[in-house]
Write a protein that binds this DNA or RNA. Sequence first.
DNA 1: TCCTTTCCGTTGGAAATCCAACCGCAAAAA
DNA 2: TTTTTGCGGTTGGATTTCCAACGGAAAGGA
Lengths: 220, 220
Amino acid sequence: MDKFYPIILNSRLFQSLSIQELPDLLKIAQPQQRTYAAGQRIWQAGEQVTSLGLVCAGRVQIIKENPQGDRMIIATIDPADLFGEAYLYAGAKTLPVSVDAVSEATVLFFEPEALLEVAWMPEGKRIIRNLLQILSQKSLLLNKKVAILSQRKTADKVLVYLKTEAKRQQTNPLKIPYNRQEMADYLGVERSALSAALSDMKQAGLLDYHKNEFTLHPFQ
Amino acid sequence: MDKFYPIILNSRLFQSLSIQELPDLLKIAQPQQRTYAAGQRIWQAGEQVTSLGLVCAGRVQIIKENPQGDRMIIATIDPADLFGEAYLYAGAKTLPVSVDAVSEATVLFFEPEALLEVAWMPEGKRIIRNLLQILSQKSLLLNKKVAILSQRKTADKVLVYLKTEAKRQQTNPLKIPYNRQEMADYLGVERSALSAALSDMKQAGLLDYHKNEFTLHPFQ
DNA sequence: TCCTTTCCGTTGGAAATCCAACCGCAAAAA
DNA sequence: TTTTTGCGGTTGGATTTCCAACGGAAAGGA
């Protein structure tokens, strides 16, 4: 497991810890290390899980499958990223999504009881705090998304999204991490409707944009 | 503060603790007790807060105000309920909503550093675990809401909502805690559109309902 | 260079929702 | 009892989005 120490320290769960503190903490937390072949299923939708996954090598994806068999990629998890964090302490809840290894992947699984034990160590506090921060920021992110999706009209979704992004990034003009299709997916609308709304708003002088760089104009 | 002990023990943060353990834990966590007059503002949208509120007496409301001055009630917080839990450990983030006391209200405010100190006590572990559970379940709840709001058509929103509710409640027929208007607000559609979709689906044999009691029919 | 691919804006008809209004029923109030 | 109020279903025109398709511009590959 030693060779993954740099990756582990890079994760949001272990950030701001030193490599000297890590072995003792891992001895307490006792994560299970598992390796999966490319394409292998890690978690199946419908299972009840209460563990947190830390990807040490390879790449895994969160997949939503509907009864018709369509596969939709919800998220891609790279080394040092986490998954399942909301299920660790929520009690046994059924997963609405599946998790697949897209390449050969090594994952560390943490269990709720053992992970809490690290709080007895002075440096363990840091881990608990990191975990609380991860969950809090996840809630705020989802809250933001709900605020966007609650808007009935495409133009309003765009404005709510760009305004919160501008506040978060503290820049104007601002760059967003999506192309048009991805932005439309995030806002929950068709790409054509998004493009149409954007050109209407540019016409109306509300904003300006080129590609993924947007400028919000003040006043209404 | 003693007279609020039963309320505090009833909160999700302190649940499954005994009244004997409480005084020592509160001495460490050092919450600030504040009392507000009816109508008084507790937090103003735009402020940066990093504390958790526990309502001990009275009632407070989460309010969303738009530039035009319309007030929208996001949530009503009764004694033993919490607010601000997602802001405690998220770093200083600006509030998108305001919090008002609707009646004379007494609130305990916990700060992030002091609250973490309770983890040194054996019973303090329970509090940390409760907090992790609160944040996790909040994320799952928001996830569910995003799944609903992401549906483009009213009928699909209804189906996603009822199916997850049926799974959660483990009952069919199931009762929901909303009337039509509240259900429409939750799903992000007009009440008329919801009523129309519901009667279409009843016509099609997908489900049955009277008032707020719904029966899902299997097969498609 | 040419060809292929990707991205983005546009368009038009079909479909769905919004919005305001009206109605009937049932529970609550007088 | 009668009256009032709240809730839920329905309706129709205006508005908006969806959906599929097309075309141009830019980037990448052969």
